[in-house]
Amino acid sequence: MLEIKNLHVKLEEEDKQILKGVDLTVEAGKVHAIMGPNGSGKSTLSYVLSGRDGYVVTDGTATLLGEDLLAMETEERAAAGLFLAFQYPVEIPGVGNMTFLRTALNAQRKARGEDEISAGDFLKLIRAKAKDLQIDADMLKRPVNVGFSGGEKKRNEILQMALLEPKMCILDETDSGLDVDAMKLVSEGVNALRDEGRGFLVITHYQRLLDHIHPDVVHIMSDGRIVKTGGPELALEVEKNGYADILEEVA
């Protein structure tokens, strides 16, 4: 599904290398988790994959279903099936959440050569998906993420994911800021989307989320590289002992 090879990334504005050779493959149907200390480059990896400005790829490749992700515009990556649930969802004053969701869905359908969804069908669809995530009508009417609580913003990210049905989902600390109940809701939302044809890359600091979303593979990222890969037990080890032992071991 997602194949990253030897990815090197530096900042555009300054000569600072952030990713120093990331190798990572997420297979269809699998859930991979990435853990790692603050500042190790996890969000940077997700931004580079989705095409955010400000980063320069100096070496390496990234493909989605065999297609060169790095050659595509951000919107083309989305249409190709990539989705990033942001660590910090963006507020957009003046753009209604509904308008935003419908525009996004229709843009992706159009890019895939499908017809636009009718206003009635869209309303039905979005109401059903919002209900699952306990997002009320008021949140749909308000401007995108404006005045949303931290947890509401994260639920809104998952709503977008549920609506757009991407093939490859990257979740960047979707669990941070969620209360216990919201964590369950969000996990259920993610689990509902799990299937044979879809891959997940879940960035997190905590085992809590992984208790609900059972990962197949866990990676540890440090200083711009994947330094260790293992099964779910690796996350438990981090939870118990922190990163010190692991980082020492690989140093």
């Binding site: 095409g51 989305a78 963006v90 996004a104 843009a107 992706q108 977008q160």
Partner: peptide, 11 residues
């Protein structure tokens, strides 16, 4: 905001 919209597939 522009990046966020584009990341959802909006040209």
């Amino acid at each position: 905001a522009l990046y966020y919209l584009r990341s959802r597939g909006v040209p």
